[in-house]
Write a protein that binds this DNA or RNA. Structure first.
Length: 592
RNA sequence: GGGGGAUUGGUGUAAUUGGUAGCACGACAGAUUCUGAUUCUGUUAGUUCGAGUUCGAGUCUCGGAUCCCCUACCA
């Protein structure tokens, strides 16, 4: 028995009980479980949606049931085909496998309309022709009850006629609504005769000009679930107050239904269950805010690698596995939690550590010259040495890298006057060049500003491959200060590397001043040009793993995980830094 | 003087019918290491508060505190 089978989250516990008691079918039949992911096609998916996709698809998979992708396209004013396409792609990327065709709420508009007519005939709904402002005013507020509309008790026949008129374009936008007759004094505002249909004289991206009325979320959602036979309709916490309404609508339709009834058989009633949405430090899941970032030009687009959209994370280099792991590990509860940003980063480091091939790249290059290179052979020679592809995976093998008399190393890896804890290069110090040779610095040059221009070293031919030299006459083996990455000046490629930092400076952007833009991090993007990378990065090599999404990901040794951006060409390489490696030296420095 | 939901180490999340408060991440210390990475070991620190019931309360009762959501013809 594993931990995973012991610790069942509250939704799994509910489903377990349902199955045991046979709530949805024969007791013990797990295959009845049916879930759905119901996005509105009015924007890109973000990591919060990813949680819902993974939860719903994961439950269906776990129980051997079904999972549907259904677009809640009930508002033609805001929805577009572009978003339908991007959402399908993102769900797929996340590993969500939906059952059958993609579904659309708009496919059920006819049935919804018929049910609405039924409620009117039952005296449970009426057409209100008051102005929107007036209806709003009559609704009351949190502490005062609402007042009844003068249309509330009009004859069903009259409502029926006006509803037909609404449907056929007889009203202008806002001219009339269909309302459920519930309770204008309810402490739950959602029950104060909520609107079921409004007039919208706009073409719909799928039904065109066929409809002039469109159903509201509360009316539509439970019906969509009902049509599809959803058993567990999962949504976020803010819909808790809507559950009584969700249930009311289904019960209103079922009122008087049953065997032999004039209305027909009872319709399926899914169970709505609310869980907390995924909140992440230093970012926002607000669609409005994400849209503002894109449209205000604060980022390059919906798939800017700094965005927590699924498209952004993908372009940043995150794997679907790491995103899935992060959102599910955060937990399924009703507690409004704020997840550490480091959890997301940790998830991708974990995954990439196991899978990403190692490569060498120098982001801020400084020249290192080996002054005794010519003493042990042709001064222009390049020696080919094998470099380990992945210490976590022996099967990944090695790749050849070329070592020569002129190399690039990281500017950070050399100090003229290093402190004791600096385990890198400095005058008189010896370090290992990874999978290359050991080198000792005997000289350097600097410009007028004190900026190092060249580092001069000798190398020890006995350390070929980076191995330790033989012990001296006393049996003592020399030790190095540390190991540095490098690339050969004669055998490397230039590249552009984009470094990303968090988009916002505050763990809860906008909390302080109310304006999320006040917390924008002006330094969230750094573009480095003239970086030097080993030649193998020029094109995919056979030793690289086959990534499911086709995105090439590597670890630049000692620096972090990077992926090839879609802007990259063989002539102009562009890498995005997904995440740095953990860096205890940076931490040490920060301590001062 | 409205309604709904929530509260367990720094963060997130577990704990059969009331019975040893566990796990992960972080932080800190050490070991290993051809990546200051990885890996391994150890340390740190918690039941929102106050009463009550009980042999025994994170769990049950009562009262308080704090946080989130609700007044679209958005979803």
């Amino acid at each position: 028995m594993t931990e995973a089978t012991i610790n069942r989250h509250f939704i799994q516990q509910i489903i377990d009980t349902d199955i045991e008691r046979g709530k949805w079918g024969a007791p013990g039949d797990r295959s009845v479980v049916t879930t759905r992911f119901p996005p509105e096609p009015n924007g890109y998916l973000h990591i919060g949606h990813a949680k819902s996709v993974c939860l719903n698809a994961g439950l269906a998979k776990e129980y051997g049931g079904r999972f549907f992708l259904r677009f809640d396209d009930t508002n033609p004013a805001k929805e577009e085909q572009e978003f339908v396409d991007s959402i399908c792609a993102d769900v797929k990327w996340l590993g969500g496998v939906w059952d059958g065709e993609v579904r659309f709420a708009s496919d059920y508009f006819d049935r919804m309309y018929t049910w609405a007519v039924e409620l009117i005939r039952k005296g449970l709904a009426y057409v209100d022709e008051q102005a929107p402002d007036l209806i709003k005013q009559q609704r009351g507020n949190l502490t005062e009850p609402g007042a009844a509309s003068p249309f509330r008790d009009r004859p069903a026949e009259e409502s029926l006629a006006q509803f037909e008129k609404m449907k056929s374009g007889g009203f202008s936008d806002g001219g009339a609504v269909l309302r459920a007759k519930i309770d204008m004094a309810s402490p739950n505002m959602n029950l104060r005769d909520p609107v079921m249909y409004r007039v919208v004289n706009k073409p719909h991206h799928r039904t065109g000009g066929r409809w002039h009325i469109y159903p509201m979320y509360d009316w539509a959602h439970g019906l969509e679930d009902s049509v599809e036979g959803i058993t567990h309709s999962l949504c976020t916490l803010e819909f808790e107050n809507h559950r009584p309404l969700y249930d009311w609508f289904i019960e209103a339709i079922n009122k008087g239904r049953g065997p032999g009834s004039e209305w027909g058989e009872r319709i399926h009633h899914a169970q709505q269950i609310e869980f907390s949405r995924f909140n992440l430090e230093y970012t926002t899941m607000s669609k409005r805010a994400l849209k503002l970032l894109v449209e205000g030009g604060h980022v390059a687009g919906w798939d800017d690698p700094r965005m927590i959209t699924v498209a952004g994370l993908r372009r940043r280099g995150y794997t679907a596995e790491s995103v899935r792991h992060a959102v599910i590990e955060a937990g399924i509860t009703k507690y409004n939690a704020l997840t550490d940003f480091t959890k997301l980063e940790n998830a991708v480091r974990d995954d990439l550590n196991r899978r990403a091939p190692r490569r060498m790249a120098v982001l801020d290059p400084v020249k290192l010259v080996i002054t005794n290179w010519g003493e042990h052979g042709d001064p222009d020679r390049l020696e080919e040495l094998p470099a380990i592809n992945n210490p976590e995976d022996e099967r990944a093998g090695t790749r050849p890298v070329k070592f020569g008399g002129e190399l690039w190393i990281e500017r950070d890896d050399f100090m003229i006057d290093p402190p004791k804890k600096f385990f890198r290069l400095g005058p008189g110090r010896e370090v290992r060049l990874r999978c290359g040779y050991w080198v000792r610095c005997h000289d350097y040059t600097a410009d007028a500003d004190g900026r190092v221009t060249e580092i001069r070293c000798t190398y020890d031919p006995q350390t070929r491959g980076g191995d330790s030299p033989p012990p001296d006459s006393d049996g003592v083996v020399r030790k190095v200060k540390g190991t540095l990455h490098w690339v050969s000046a004669a055998d490397c490629l230039d590249a552009t590397v984009r470094l990303f930092d968090r988009l916002f400076n505050d763990p809860r952007p906008g909390k302080r001043t109310g304006d999320i833009l006040d917390d924008l991090n002006p330094d969230s993007l750094t573009v480095l040009t003239g970086c030097k990378v080993e030649r193998s990065l020029g094109g995919a090599t056979p030793d690289e793993p086959a990534w499911a999404d086709g995105i090439r990901r590597v670890q630049f040794e000692r620096l972090g995980y990077f992926c090839l951006d879609r802007d990259s060409t063989p002539e102009a390489l562009v890498f995005n830094r997904t995440v740095t490696l953990k860096d205890s030296w940076a931490k040490e420095q920060a301590k001062g």
